[in-house]
Protein backbone atom coordinates (compact mmCIF):
# COMPACT_ATOMS: atom_id res chain seq x y z
CA UNK A 1 0.00 0.00 0.00
CA UNK A 2 2.84 2.38 0.93
CA UNK A 3 4.25 2.12 -2.55
CA UNK A 4 1.30 4.12 -3.80
CA UNK A 5 2.34 7.01 -1.59
CA UNK A 6 6.05 6.62 -1.99
CA UNK A 7 5.99 6.63 -5.77
CA UNK A 8 2.83 8.49 -6.78
CA UNK A 9 4.42 9.88 -9.91
CA UNK A 10 5.40 6.48 -11.25
CA UNK A 11 1.97 5.08 -10.44
CA UNK A 12 0.31 8.00 -12.19
CA UNK A 13 2.54 7.63 -15.22
CA UNK A 14 1.85 3.91 -15.48
CA UNK A 15 -1.88 4.52 -15.10
CA UNK A 16 -1.77 6.94 -18.03
CA UNK A 17 0.20 4.43 -20.04
CA UNK A 18 -2.40 1.81 -19.22
CA UNK A 19 -5.27 4.03 -20.28
CA UNK A 20 -3.50 4.93 -23.50
CA UNK A 21 -2.87 1.29 -24.37
CA UNK A 22 -6.49 0.38 -23.72
CA UNK A 23 -7.84 3.49 -25.44
CA UNK A 24 -5.89 3.01 -28.66
CA UNK A 25 -6.75 -0.67 -28.84
CA UNK A 26 -10.47 -0.22 -28.24
CA UNK A 27 -10.57 2.71 -30.67
CA UNK A 28 -8.91 0.59 -33.34
CA UNK A 29 -11.25 -2.29 -32.59
CA UNK A 30 -14.25 0.03 -32.89
CA UNK A 31 -13.03 1.41 -36.22
CA UNK A 32 -12.66 -2.14 -37.52
CA UNK A 33 -15.46 -3.89 -35.64
CA UNK A 34 -18.39 -1.60 -36.42
CA UNK A 35 -17.91 -1.69 -40.22
CA UNK A 36 -17.35 -5.44 -40.06
CA UNK A 37 -20.53 -5.80 -37.98
CA UNK A 38 -22.47 -3.71 -40.50
CA UNK A 39 -21.06 -5.83 -43.30
CA UNK A 40 -22.31 -8.94 -41.52
CA UNK A 41 -25.85 -7.55 -41.44
CA UNK A 42 -25.65 -6.88 -45.19
CA UNK A 43 -23.95 -10.09 -46.23
CA UNK A 44 -25.57 -12.55 -43.90
CA UNK A 45 -23.42 -15.60 -44.53
CA UNK A 46 -20.39 -13.71 -43.24
CA UNK A 47 -21.86 -13.45 -39.75
CA UNK A 48 -21.30 -16.97 -38.53
CA UNK A 49 -17.68 -17.45 -39.73
CA UNK A 50 -16.64 -14.00 -38.49
CA UNK A 51 -18.26 -14.44 -35.09
CA UNK A 52 -16.82 -17.94 -34.76
CA UNK A 53 -13.36 -16.76 -35.69
CA UNK A 54 -13.37 -13.85 -33.26
CA UNK A 55 -14.93 -16.12 -30.65
CA UNK A 56 -12.10 -18.61 -30.96
CA UNK A 57 -9.54 -15.81 -30.92
CA UNK A 58 -11.12 -14.67 -27.70
CA UNK A 59 -10.46 -18.00 -25.98
CA UNK A 60 -6.70 -17.85 -26.57
CA UNK A 61 -5.04 -16.98 -23.25
CA UNK A 62 -3.56 -13.51 -23.51
CA UNK A 63 -0.07 -14.46 -22.38
CA UNK A 64 0.01 -17.17 -25.04
CA UNK A 65 -1.32 -14.73 -27.62
CA UNK A 66 1.41 -12.21 -26.80
CA UNK A 67 4.01 -14.95 -26.91
CA UNK A 68 2.86 -16.14 -30.31
CA UNK A 69 3.01 -12.60 -31.71
CA UNK A 70 6.43 -11.73 -30.27
CA UNK A 71 8.58 -13.57 -32.85
CA UNK A 72 6.81 -11.59 -35.59
CA UNK A 73 6.09 -8.19 -34.08
CA UNK A 74 8.65 -8.03 -31.32
CA UNK A 75 8.36 -6.91 -27.71
CA UNK A 76 6.56 -3.71 -26.75
CA UNK A 77 3.39 -1.75 -26.92
CA UNK A 78 2.63 -2.40 -30.59
CA UNK A 79 2.35 -6.16 -30.05
CA UNK A 80 0.12 -5.57 -27.04
CA UNK A 81 -2.04 -3.19 -29.08
CA UNK A 82 -2.51 -5.75 -31.84
CA UNK A 83 -3.57 -8.43 -29.37
CA UNK A 84 -5.86 -6.13 -27.42
CA UNK A 85 -7.49 -4.93 -30.62
CA UNK A 86 -8.15 -8.46 -31.78
CA UNK A 87 -9.59 -9.39 -28.38
CA UNK A 88 -11.89 -6.37 -28.40
CA UNK A 89 -13.30 -7.16 -31.83
CA UNK A 90 -15.63 -9.95 -30.70
CA UNK A 91 -17.79 -7.87 -28.36
CA UNK A 92 -17.94 -4.94 -30.75
CA UNK A 93 -18.81 -6.94 -33.86
CA UNK A 94 -21.37 -9.03 -31.98
CA UNK A 95 -23.11 -6.03 -30.49
CA UNK A 96 -23.09 -4.09 -33.75
CA UNK A 97 -24.93 -6.96 -35.42
CA UNK A 98 -27.34 -7.33 -32.49
CA UNK A 99 -27.99 -3.59 -32.35
CA UNK A 100 -28.83 -3.33 -36.02
CA UNK A 101 -30.90 -6.50 -35.93
CA UNK A 102 -32.88 -5.07 -33.01
CA UNK A 103 -34.17 -2.11 -35.01
CA UNK A 104 -37.91 -2.75 -35.39
CA UNK A 105 -39.06 -3.94 -38.77
CA UNK A 106 -41.78 -1.30 -38.82
CA UNK A 107 -39.23 1.48 -38.40
CA UNK A 108 -37.21 0.14 -41.31
CA UNK A 109 -40.30 -0.24 -43.45
CA UNK A 110 -41.23 3.34 -42.69
CA UNK A 111 -37.74 4.48 -43.67
CA UNK A 112 -37.94 2.50 -46.88
CA UNK A 113 -41.42 3.82 -47.52
CA UNK A 114 -40.16 7.39 -47.22
CA UNK A 115 -37.73 6.67 -49.98
CA UNK A 116 -34.47 6.39 -48.05
CA UNK A 117 -31.60 4.73 -49.80
CA UNK A 118 -29.76 1.86 -48.13
CA UNK A 119 -27.02 4.24 -47.03
CA UNK A 120 -29.50 6.75 -45.62
CA UNK A 121 -31.31 4.01 -43.73
CA UNK A 122 -28.01 2.93 -42.22
CA UNK A 123 -26.82 6.34 -41.12
CA UNK A 124 -30.16 7.96 -40.29
CA UNK A 125 -32.03 5.03 -38.79
CA UNK A 126 -30.13 1.85 -38.06
CA UNK A 127 -26.89 3.14 -36.58
CA UNK A 128 -28.45 5.83 -34.38
CA UNK A 129 -30.89 3.31 -32.94
CA UNK A 130 -28.14 0.70 -32.53
CA UNK A 131 -25.75 3.00 -30.71
CA UNK A 132 -26.70 2.00 -27.16
CA UNK A 133 -26.15 -1.67 -27.96
CA UNK A 134 -22.92 -1.01 -29.83
CA UNK A 135 -21.73 1.08 -26.93
CA UNK A 136 -22.51 -1.75 -24.53
CA UNK A 137 -20.17 -3.88 -26.65
CA UNK A 138 -17.48 -1.22 -26.47
CA UNK A 139 -17.87 -1.17 -22.71
CA UNK A 140 -17.46 -4.93 -22.43
CA UNK A 141 -14.42 -4.75 -24.71
CA UNK A 142 -12.89 -1.94 -22.66
CA UNK A 143 -13.33 -3.82 -19.40
CA UNK A 144 -11.67 -6.91 -20.84
CA UNK A 145 -8.88 -4.77 -22.32
CA UNK A 146 -8.13 -3.11 -18.97
CA UNK A 147 -7.62 -6.55 -17.45
CA UNK A 148 -5.58 -7.96 -20.31
CA UNK A 149 -3.44 -4.83 -20.58
CA UNK A 150 -2.21 -5.61 -17.07
CA UNK A 151 -0.68 -8.77 -18.46
CA UNK A 152 0.79 -6.92 -21.44
CA UNK A 153 3.41 -5.46 -19.13
CA UNK A 154 5.19 -8.79 -19.32
CA UNK A 155 6.10 -8.12 -22.94
CA UNK A 156 7.25 -4.61 -22.19
CA UNK A 157 4.10 -2.73 -23.08
CA UNK A 158 4.15 -0.77 -19.84
CA UNK A 159 1.06 0.06 -17.82
CA UNK A 160 0.05 -0.93 -14.32
CA UNK A 161 1.09 -4.53 -14.90
CA UNK A 162 4.69 -3.27 -14.56
CA UNK A 163 4.14 -2.80 -10.86
CA UNK A 164 2.83 -6.34 -10.45
CA UNK A 165 5.52 -8.04 -12.53
CA UNK A 166 8.34 -5.96 -11.08
CA UNK A 167 6.98 -6.71 -7.65
CA UNK A 168 6.76 -10.41 -8.37
CA UNK A 169 10.31 -10.48 -9.68
CA UNK A 170 11.77 -8.66 -6.73
CA UNK A 171 9.34 -10.26 -4.26
CA UNK A 172 8.16 -6.82 -3.31
CA UNK A 173 4.62 -7.51 -2.09
CA UNK A 174 3.99 -3.83 -1.56
CA UNK A 175 4.57 -3.04 -5.19
CA UNK A 176 2.44 -5.98 -6.32
CA UNK A 177 -0.35 -4.75 -4.09
CA UNK A 178 -0.06 -1.23 -5.45
CA UNK A 179 -0.37 -2.52 -9.01
CA UNK A 180 -3.25 -4.85 -8.17
CA UNK A 181 -5.17 -2.15 -6.35
CA UNK A 182 -4.65 0.47 -9.02
CA UNK A 183 -5.67 -1.93 -11.77
CA UNK A 184 -8.81 -2.83 -9.85
CA UNK A 185 -9.65 0.79 -9.17
CA UNK A 186 -9.12 1.66 -12.81
CA UNK A 187 -11.41 -1.17 -13.86
CA UNK A 188 -14.13 -0.19 -11.38
CA UNK A 189 -13.97 3.50 -12.22
CA UNK A 190 -13.90 2.71 -15.93
CA UNK A 191 -16.87 0.40 -15.59
CA UNK A 192 -18.82 3.00 -13.64
CA UNK A 193 -17.99 5.82 -16.04
CA UNK A 194 -18.85 3.79 -19.13
CA UNK A 195 -22.06 2.62 -17.55
CA UNK A 196 -23.08 6.23 -16.91
CA UNK A 197 -22.16 7.16 -20.45
CA UNK A 198 -24.13 4.20 -21.78
CA UNK A 199 -27.20 5.19 -19.77
CA UNK A 200 -26.97 8.71 -21.12
CA UNK A 201 -26.73 7.38 -24.67
CA UNK A 202 -29.72 5.14 -24.13
CA UNK A 203 -31.72 8.08 -22.79
CA UNK A 204 -30.81 10.12 -25.82
CA UNK A 205 -31.71 7.31 -28.17
CA UNK A 206 -34.97 6.81 -26.30
CA UNK A 207 -35.77 10.51 -26.45
CA UNK A 208 -34.92 10.59 -30.12
CA UNK A 209 -37.12 7.58 -30.78
CA UNK A 210 -39.99 9.19 -28.89
CA UNK A 211 -39.53 12.54 -30.53
CA UNK A 212 -39.73 11.01 -33.95
Amino acid sequence: MFYLFEQPERVFELTLEHIRLVGISVLAATLIGVPVGILCTRIRWLESPILNLSGILYTIPSLAFFAILIPYTGLGASTATIALTLYSLLAIIRNTIAGIDDVPRATLDAARGMGMTGRQRLFLVELPLAIPVIFAGIRVATMAAIGIAVIAAVIGAGGLGRLIFDGLRTLDADQVLAGAIMATVLALVGDWALKRLGDALRRDAGAAAEGR
Partner: peptide, 17 residues
Protein backbone atom coordinates in the same frame (compact mmCIF):
# COMPACT_ATOMS: atom_id res chain seq x y z
CA UNK B 1 -19.92 -8.32 -10.22
CA UNK B 2 -17.15 -6.23 -8.69
CA UNK B 3 -15.05 -9.37 -8.41
CA UNK B 4 -15.55 -9.94 -12.14
CA UNK B 5 -14.13 -6.50 -12.82
CA UNK B 6 -10.92 -7.10 -10.90
CA UNK B 7 -8.20 -7.93 -13.43
CA UNK B 8 -7.13 -11.56 -13.12
CA UNK B 9 -3.48 -10.72 -12.72
CA UNK B 10 -4.46 -8.44 -9.86
CA UNK B 11 -6.10 -11.39 -8.11
CA UNK B 12 -2.95 -13.43 -8.57
CA UNK B 13 -0.93 -10.46 -7.40
CA UNK B 14 -3.07 -10.04 -4.31
CA UNK B 15 -2.68 -13.67 -3.27
CA UNK B 16 1.10 -13.42 -3.25
CA UNK B 17 1.41 -11.26 -0.14
Amino acid sequence: NVGQTVPSLAILGLTLP
